[in-house]
C-alpha cells in the first residue's frame, strides 16, 4: 500500500517536473524532446491507473507518433529559432499567467477531489452486456459495440484531418508525393533498422490487434505500430511515399470506414438497428471491422506525419 503510493507519487512527480521543464525551456528542440519523455512517462502513469489500453495508446500515439511529428517540425523551423527566442513575454505577463494557471489548477484539483463517492460507473452495465459481444476486453467492447458511433466518427475525423492537411499542398505539387526524397545510405544504421524492425513490428502489430479482443490492445495501437514501421522504411529511403493521387492509397484510407458502415447497415436487417451485431456473430464481425480499420489507421496516421505533398509524382 505504502509502496504503491510512493511509486505513484514518484512517477507523477517526475511527470510534473518534466512537464514544467518542457514548458519553460527556451530551446524548442529541447522542449520537443522533453515532451517525448513526458509522453512515455505518462504511459507508465496509465499503467498505474490500470488502464492498459490507454497506456498503449498514449505510448504509441501520444508519446510516440506525436513526438515524431513535432521533431520533424522543430527541425524544419530551426531557422526561425533565434528570432523566436527573442520574443519573450514581459515579466508582468508571465506573473499573471502563472497566477491564472495556478488558480485554474487548484480549482480543478478541488473540484476533482470533490467528485461524489461512491463514484458512478458504467462498469456494471458493461459487465452485464459484454457477453453478447463475445469479447473479453471491455474497452474494445465499448469502442466497437456500445459506443461504436464514436469510433466510426473518429475514423472520419482522421480522414477529415488528412484532407485538411492535403488542402495545404502548393498547387503545383497537387497529386504528388508527400515529404522529401530521403537519401538512401544502404550501409547506414537507419537502413539496417528499416530492414530489421518492420517484419518484427508488423508481427507485433497484428498480434496487438488480434489479442485486443480479449486482452489490452486493439486496432489503434496496432495501426500505430504499422504506421511507425512504414514511416521507418520511408525515412530510411527504403520505400517512397506513394503519390496522393493514387487510387489504391485513397482506397486504403477509406476501407476501414466503409467496412464499418457496411457492417453497421447490415445490422439493420440482421440485428434490428444500425451498428447492432447479430447474435453469435458479434466477435468475428468486430474483428473484421478492426482488421480493415487497422490498415486504414496505419495509412492515415503515416500520411498525417509525412504531411502534404512536396514534390511531383515522379519517382
Amino acid at each position: 500500500m505504502i509502496g504503491g503510493i510512493l511509486v505513484d507519487g514518484g512517477l507523477l512527480a517526475m511527470v510534473v517536473v518534466v512537464a514544467v521543464w518542457t514548458i519553460l525551456v527556451r530551446d524548442s528542440f529541447a522542449a520537443v524532446i522533453g515532451y517525448a519523455c513526458y509522453g512515455l512517462l505518462l504511459a507508465f502513469a496509465w499503467v498505474r491507473l490500470a488502464a492498459i489500453d490507454a497506456a498503449l495508446t498514449e505510448a504509441a500515439i501520444g508519446g510516440g507518433l506525436t513526438s515524431v511529428l513535432l521533431i520533424r517540425a522543430v527541425v524544419r523551423l530551426r531557422v526561425t529559432e533565434v528570432s523566436a527566442q527573442a520574443e519573450t513575454p514581459g515579466r508582468l505577463q508571465r506573473i499573471l499567467a502563472a497566477v491564472l494557471s495556478v488558480a485554474v489548477a487548484v480549482a480543478l484539483g478541488v473540484v476533482v477531489l470533490g467528485l461524489p463517492e461512491p463514484a458512478p460507473s458504467l462498469a456494471p452495465r458493461v459487465a452485464e452486456h459484454i457477453a453478447s459481444t463475445g469479447l473479453g476486453n471491455a474497452v474494445t467492447a465499448v469502442l466497437l459495440a456500445f459506443r461504436a458511433i464514436d469510433t466510426l466518427l473518429e475514423a472520419v475525423v482522421l480522414v477529415y484531418a488528412l484532407i485538411a492537411v492535403w488542402a495545404l499542398t502548393p498547387d503545383r505539387f497537387w497529386g504528388g508525393r508527400p515529404g522529401p526524397k530521403y537519401a538512401v545510405d544502404p550501409n547506414g544504421m537507419l537502413a539496417y533498422l528499416a530492414r530489421l524492425l518492420p517484419p518484427l513490428g508488423i508481427v507485433v502489430g497484428i498480434y496487438v490487434f488480434w489479442v485486443g479482443a480479449d486482452l489490452p490492445g486493439g486496432k489503434f495501437q496496432a495501426g500505430t505500430l504499422l504506421a511507425a514501421m512504414w514511416l521507418l522504411t520511408i525515412m530510411a529511403g527504403v520505400t517512397d511515399v506513394p503519390p496522393i493521387s493514387r487510387r489504391l492509397l485513397r482506397g486504403a484510407l477509406v476501407a476501414g470506414t466503409v467496412v464499418f458502415l457496411a457492417i453497421g447497415f447490415a445490422g439493420v436487417p440482421l440485428a434490428g438497428a444500425f451498428l447492432a451485431y447479430p447474435e453469435g456473430f458479434a466477435k468475428p464481425l468486430i474483428l473484421f471491422i478492426e482488421a480493415a480499420s487497422m490498415v486504414s489507421i496505419a495509412v492515415t496516421l503515416g500520411l498525417l506525419v509525412v504531411g502534404p505533398p512536396e514534390r511531383g509524382d515522379a519517382p
Binding site: 452495465r125 458493461v126 452486456h129 459495440a145 456500445f146 461504436a148 444500425f274 451498428l275 447492432a276 451485431y277
Partner: peptide, 9 residues
Amino acid sequence: LGGWAPPLG
C-alpha cells in the same frame, strides 16, 4: 444506436 440504450450506448 446498436440497440444499446444510454447510458451504456
